[in-house]
Simulated scan of single mutants.
Amino acid sequence: MVVLHHLNTFTISMEFFSHFPWSFTPTPPSRFNIFHPRFLFLQKVNKSQHLCHCSSVSPSSQQLQEQVADGGGTGHFGNLVQGYGWKVRKMVEEDHEMRSVANIQAESFYEPVILFNDVFFQFFQAEVLAGLLYRLKNSPPDRYACLVAETMTREIEDRQKLVGVVDVTVFRDESVLGYLSGADEYLYVSGIAVLPDFRRKKVASILLKACEMLANVWGYKYLVLRAYEDDWGARKLYTNAGYRMVSGDPLWTSSWIGRRRRVLLIKQCNTT
Rank of each mutant, 00 (worst) to 15 (best):
S139I: 01
S60E: 03
K44C: 10
N46T: 11
S254R: 13
K161C: 13
K161V: 14
P141S: 09
P21A: 08
L129K: 02
N103P: 01
L147R: 02
V88N: 01
S61E: 03
S60C: 03
S108R: 06
P140D: 06
Q62H: 09
A210R: 03
R135Y: 06
G78C: 11
L225A: 03
F17A: 12
R262T: 04
E150S: 13
P196Y: 14
A130P: 04
A234D: 01
L237H: 02
L264H: 00
D249Q: 09
S181D: 15
F109P: 02
A241Y: 08
L51H: 11
A126R: 04
L64P: 01
V217F: 07
L251E: 15
P140C: 00
A102P: 03
F16Q: 09
P112T: 06
F123V: 07
V176D: 07
V194F: 10
V81F: 00
N46D: 13
L237T: 02
L136T: 02
I104K: 02
E15W: 01
K47M: 10
L177D: 05
M14V: 14
T169Y: 08
R262Q: 14
K209Y: 06
F198V: 06
I206V: 15
A204I: 02
M91E: 06
F123G: 04
L4M: 11
V45W: 02
R226V: 03
Q65T: 06
D249S: 13
W218P: 06
G131D: 01
Q63D: 12
A227P: 00
N138L: 01
D249V: 00
T25W: 03
F109M: 13
Q63S: 13
Q160R: 15
L225P: 00
R200N: 09
A145H: 00
P21N: 12
G78L: 08
N270V: 14
F123S: 08
S55L: 11
R259C: 12
L40H: 13
G131R: 02
Q105V: 13
K201E: 08
F16E: 09
S58C: 05
S61R: 11
T253H: 08
Q160W: 09
T239V: 09
F198K: 08
N117V: 05
Y110H: 07
M98V: 13
V92P: 06
